[in-house]
Design a protein around this nucleic acid. Structure first.
Lengths: 355, 355
DNA sequence: TTGAAAGCGCTAACAA
DNA sequence: TTGTTAGCGCTTTCAA
């Protein structure tokens, strides 16, 4: 059974019944209640300028007809969509693997719950082909604003949305100048502290598996690694550095490569918990004990870190707070409130068994 | 900095510029191109009834003005929203932990990519308070249809959407009669095969950590466990059965409880990979080797299963296929095509190191 | 406090 | 092939 038909030629049914029944309109409510459309509208929108008597009648009619206002009509006149988008600029595959996002969504929901009645919708870009449709969706007036996270390299979606006049806020800085407001965490500081700790506890050959180097988080955590070495007057050995992509498998592969090109490593800083976990597997397979032979520290302090065996030390980022801040910033942009363009949140090293 | 203002009183800006600039309209494009609005509309909608010359002029004007059609206006007249919702009826916390959803989303995206131009939006219900807003969003005409997964107990969202005339399809059966079309996997069969395998390979005390018993998947996998025992003429011992909620922690807790109330268990069937992983940790802590002392089989065949150590045997469910089927079914409902109300997809036991 | 009327930006007959 | 016209369902002046 295939869907059939060319793209775009489906039956018009939005909000309508498959069986043909059309949704009730304001007009019908007004007729049943014996008042004008304007009065019904006032009742629906909680205007105080309605008599108790009229309100009563209208509410009865609404209940009886199971009336629900038509969003499109409303949006058309109010220029307000009633929803904001959280855009994850990568395949859902990544999204669902990354415990990272859970806290973010929680924070966004919390901030949204207080102060607005906007519905949060999550949009993913599964493939390159989705881009066009996604951007159209966002610029269409479908949403009142967009939060964008996990943006790679030269993707200029933020600039395009900004130019189109859509209120937009970024999570995680870009590697270029960008006029779009941004909330970031102190990746440099977090990595620096973690690697500093490893060096301070006597590790001499500290390796790292970086994040993707076309992302701020990737570059900055690598920078923190370098600075910690500078802080300790320790030399940096390129053989101790490999690039990953935050996913578990790249941690596994990365660790194997490290074990090959620098078998004398005695510590590892992975730019994500998932990579740290993958790396720990590779270490186990190679017969290296953690933290005996090799100390390991991850980044994210996800649930997985605490649940790992041995429990993984990690740099905690306040994802929930990030979600909240991004949302407040977006609501301010929507409201035309002036604010600082960038906020950076602190991180914290959480030590467990692994290092 | 707080968002300020009462709910619902934000500035009207949908699709509009924060700076006040209003988006271009069809009318302005028509004026610039020197044609009527109808002609512009035809060009935008790829109608063949436009002269090459007119089309040219219009396209130029569109490019120059960076015109983008207003969705609300379009939706109002076409009764078509251009997006469908995937509703996950639980907190994002669960969502992002569960590798389960990645395949589903992939399947939905694939099916959507061919045959339609609908945008997929993911909606979560973080808290009980979100319900009202969520349901309003869905019934509003915001979307053309809804896919609902991970529904618990007496939640009658599907019925309400169905009554409201919104095309809806379920993923995973409900524990009650329901007029809403549904795609499910053969949970009973999958569990039966897995447990059957354990019994057939000489295990005598096979325990299980079930899913939540207010969900079809929970009840059905438990049923498969029972049937496998019946198949093998093996007695069922209630002490070998504990209830979990699919999350890792409940697997950990469940296994600890099992080890206490039935220390002689020699195999474990967990109704999710996450629970199996949690259980394996508890087993390790208790000094039980896997699969030497205790064989373990999970359910989902997620990436985590193959990546675990020891690698976890698991029942594979075709999540991508489920996403595809659900989507095709939904598109058919939207198009008013008659179809069977229920589809059940097969599962497959994947044996690895753990059992 | 209420109603009449004018759109919001677009599509879709219907005429020309 | 094109333009004119009439709405889609709602909010919002403006009068009454």
């Amino acid at each position: 059974v295939t869907a059939g038909g060319a793209p775009g030629d489906r039956e018009p049914t939005a909000g309508g019944a498959p069986g043909g029944r059309r949704p009730t309109t304001l007009e019908e409510v007004a007729a049943l209640a014996g008042v004008s459309r304007a009065t019904v509208s006032r009742v629906v929108n909680d205007s105080p300028r309605v008599s108790e008597q009229a309100r009563e009648k209208v509410l009865h009619a609404i209940a009886e007809l199971r009336y629900m206002p038509n969003r499109a009509a409303r949006t058309l006149v109010t220029r307000h969509a009633g929803s904001i988008a959280l855009v994850v600029a990568e395949p859902g595959t990544r999204l669902f693997g990354e415990p990272y996002f859970a806290g973010l969504v929680r924070g966004v929901s919390q901030a949204l719950a207080q102060g607005t009645d906007e519905q949060l919708v999550l949009l993913m870009r599964q493939s390159k082909e989705d881009s066009g449709r996604l951007e159209r969706y966002l610029r269409n007036g479908h949403v009142d604003g967009a939060l964008i996270v996990s943006l790679h390299g030269r993707d200029n979606l933020p600039e395009r949305l900004h130019d189109a006049g859509l209120p937009t806020v970024l999570g995680g800085r870009l590697l270029r100048e960008c006029p779009v407001p941004c909330v970031d965490v102190d990746n440099v500081g977090g990595a620096r502290t973690a690697v500093g700790h490893l060096l301070a506890t006597g590790r001499r050959r500290v390796a790292t598996i970086t994040g993707p180097l076309d992302m701020g988080a990737g570059v900055d955590r690598r920078e923190g690694y370098l600075r910690a070495h500078a802080d300790a007057d320790a030399a940096v050995d390129e053989r101790l550095i490999v690039e990953g992509d935050f996913a578990r498998s790249s941690g596994y592969e990365g660790a194997r490569r490290l074990l090959e090109q620098a078998p004398d490593l005695d510590a590892l800083f992975a730019a994500s918990d998932l990579m740290a976990l993958g790396a720990m597997r590779a270490l186990a397979e190679a017969g290296r004990s953690v933290p005996g032979d090799v100390a390991v520290i991850g980044f994210d302090d996800s649930e997985l870190a605490a649940g790992a065996y041995p429990a993984l030390s990690s740099v905690r980022q306040p994802m929930t707070e990030m979600g909240r801040q991004m949302t407040r910033m977006l609501l301010d942009v929507i409201d035309g409130v002036d604010r600082e363009l960038t906020v950076t949140l602190g991180t914290e090293l959480v030590l467990r068994d692994s290092g």
